Lab assay of single mutants.
Amino acid sequence: MDALKSAGRALIRSPSLAKQSWGGGGRHRKLPENWTDTRETLLEGMLFSLKYLGMTLVEQPKGEELSAAAIKRIVATAKASGKKLQKVTLKVSPRGIILTDNLTNQLIENVSIYRISYCTADKMHDKVFAYIAQSQHNQSLECHAFLCTKRKMAQAVTLTVAQAFKVAFEFWQVSKEEKEKRDKASQEGGDVLGARQDCTPPLKSLVATGNLLDLEETAKAPLSTVSANTTNMDEVPRPQALSGSSVVWELDDGLDEAFSRLAQSRTNPQVLDTGLTAQDMHYAQCLSPVDWDKPDSSGTEQDDLFSF
């Protein structure tokens, strides 16, 4: 819950932080000083300027060897085509990944977070970031790969997607708890209302004896509580940590079903599988986004697919 609360507080303090972009060759504004600060901008989305290598189908939802083989196929196909790589912007948030063309600003792909089953910074092609997700059109699994400016960037994108998945799962947990509370309150309110109706004398007997209905007592009954809980029953509950912020979080049926399955089948359902080692994760978390744009010590960066 700490990640969720800190993310909400950060967004309320400075929503404009989320509009910064990394990996864009110096076009961005001043960047936060450390990885923790940038992680807090996830709610509205972190932007990464990358190059799209392509996509291939895979048979399993996750796995280092599986993704490595898929990336190898994608890279080989991209090299064989001889075409310049498409420059894209990857927007990562707890909602998922939005992929747009840098030149036309046209939407290429919009992947809900619950469809993503794996992401990684490839070991062999260490400047490549990739994720595996279920197609929104059918049940097939797709591996999408992107060329980053350097290994640090690939690791940073991988960690960002993993963190977005974690925050999304926490949102789901909060929403589920809130819905259970509202359902319980609604049920209790309905029981109270039913009890009051059972003990209320029939209207005919009131008229016969000349008694008047006590409207004041009726007004004191917990009807307002019942209506408050039943009027918006169809509205999706939102985490309290975000009250007053500009973010509107809505959970669709697909996300609810997917996270429910994860909660039942996995020990740590909030953790998205990645190909990063503990050492890689520690190294990337210690980086400032400013470091992502620094040239690798191995030599001059080449803006070309064939540089790796």
Rank of each mutant, 00 (worst) to 15 (best):
S298Y: 04
A263H: 03
C119H: 01
M55K: 11
A263K: 12
T274P: 03
L251P: 14
V111H: 08
Q86E: 05
I116Y: 02
C119T: 05
S135K: 04
V290I: 15
L242Q: 08
G190W: 02
L276Q: 13
Q197T: 13
K127V: 00
G25D: 15
T158M: 05
V247Y: 11
F48V: 03
D293V: 06
G190T: 05
R182W: 09
S227Y: 09
D253K: 06
S117G: 06
V207T: 09
S135N: 14
T77P: 09
S16G: 04
P32L: 10
S117C: 01
S67R: 00
K152M: 12
A7C: 13
G8R: 11
A121L: 04
W22D: 03
Q270K: 04
T89A: 13
L147T: 01
E109R: 11
D291E: 11
E235S: 05
R13Y: 14
G54S: 00
L42M: 13
Q264T: 04
V174P: 05
Q264W: 05
V161L: 10
T100E: 13
R266Y: 02
W172G: 03
D126S: 00
T277W: 01
G23Q: 03
E301R: 08
H125Y: 00
L206S: 11
I113E: 10
L262I: 10
S6T: 15
C199G: 09
L287H: 11
F171T: 02
N229E: 06
T89Y: 09
L31Q: 09
E142D: 09
G194T: 11
A78D: 00
L203N: 03
F171A: 03
K51P: 00
E250Y: 04
N110K: 08
W172T: 03
A164D: 06
S243F: 09
K166D: 03
T200F: 02
E64A: 12
K176A: 09
L203F: 07
N110L: 07
S140E: 10
P222G: 09
R151P: 07
A145E: 00
A164G: 14
H144K: 15
V247E: 15
D293L: 08
L287G: 13
S224E: 13
E109T: 12
L272V: 09
H144W: 14
Q60I: 12
M153H: 10
M124H: 05
V174L: 01
R73S: 12
M46G: 04
G96L: 01
V111F: 05
L215R: 14
E257A: 01
N110A: 04
S186R: 04
T277Y: 08
S16C: 14
Q187F: 01
S135L: 02
D2R: 02
K84N: 07
P295S: 02
K91L: 05
K62P: 04
R95W: 06
T231A: 12
E33F: 14
L215W: 08
T225D: 04
P222I: 12
G299L: 05
P15I: 06
A164I: 04
S224A: 04
E142K: 03
T77E: 12
R29V: 07
R151I: 01
C119P: 01
R151M: 04
D2Q: 02
E216I: 04
W35H: 04
V247S: 09
T149D: 05
H282P: 03
S21W: 08
L193Y: 02
Q20E: 12
A68Y: 01
L47I: 03
D198M: 05
R151W: 02
L141M: 13
V111R: 08
L215T: 14
T149P: 15
E109P: 01
A69N: 07
N34C: 04
E170I: 06
G8E: 07
S245G: 10
G189Y: 04
A284H: 13
E64P: 13
S67W: 01
P269F: 02
A121P: 00
E250I: 08
D273M: 08
K179L: 12
M55Y: 09
Q197H: 04
V128M: 01
S49L: 12
L43P: 13
R73Q: 15
T158E: 02
D122H: 01
I74T: 03
T209R: 15
V161S: 07
Q197K: 08
A68L: 15
S298F: 02
T231F: 04
L223F: 04
D234Q: 03
S245R: 10
V167D: 13
A70Y: 02
L103K: 03
L103N: 08
D253A: 11
